[in-house]
Amino acid sequence: MMRLPWFQYQRPASVAEAARMLAAEGPRGMLIAGGTDLLPNMKRRQQTPATLISLSRVEGLKKITNGSGLTLGAGLTLTEVVGTGAVREKYRGLWQAAAQVASPHLRNMGTLGGNLCLDTRCNYYNQNEEWREAIGYCMKKEGKTCWVATASKRCLAVSSTDTAPALIALDAKVRLVSAAGERELALASLYNNDGINYITRKPDEILTEVVLPQLDGWSSTYWKLRRRGSFDFPLLGVAAAARMAPDGSVLEARVVLGAVSSQPLPLAKASEFLVGKKLNDEVIAEAGVLAASRAKPMDNTDLDVYWRKEVVPSFVGYALREIRGDDMRAMRMRISRQAL
């Protein structure tokens, strides 16, 4: 049986109390929400916090505020996010992304905040301690080399969150609270392109809320590439959101790739390229090529790395065709194995 290491456990009742505890523990402490990312990592001894500060009893983290835009508590489970009518109706890309995270059980446990803070992944790193010992460890934990590309100066572990690309495409912000105060941050700025320092959340900060703007006239979507219809992390995520003029030309657009870098990858060029154009097949194909040029999948997860790059235009195409209004249900069934 894979077992957790020993740890101290604290269970604050409020964000303020949690923030105080986190500040007091310093780097020895880690927050636990759903636990679906942290606990496997702890069982494999990738992360060994001395203290876990539980967010399970913290008040207010499951709040949903429906005003101008939508504010989602970071403690909502992914199942709860999927079950939120406003998400399904107005922020379809987020709905589709959340519905494709991991498996039903893991969505019942894992939280929105947890998925945004998900540790970067790499199959040189997401291994048991003995396995990592057998390769002499890696840069992300206890070693010096990044085995994905041994000349690399930085860790190439991959950002594997589904909801972050979808939320960045929806121009979401996040609220971070610490003992010293709080701040709101564009979600895109939460990430660094570095497998180790992948997140700009300070160690003493708690991600409490996701703030979505009012998005009248926008449509959004998320497509996920993975081997199976369940369990698997993305090998490619394509999130797209666009606002269109009545004539079908694009007024604003945001395309974001997931799982092809150590951070979610907003595609400024491809997004700008779409503005002012109608989403005809040629435009979509060109946007796909632009997107693929930015994607840098690494050989540290499933399936062939060159193939994963090669199919980026197709997946961008699925997303943009869905935005355009094509009936993509049959393709969605073939790719995702479920109706979304």
């Binding site: 199959n123 199976r228 219809g229 369940s230 698997d232 499933d302 479920q338």
Partner: peptide
């Protein structure tokens, strides 16, 4: 990572 078919596949 050792991929086996799920109910959806």
């Amino acid at each position: 990572e050792y991929k086996s078919i799920t109910s959806l596949d």
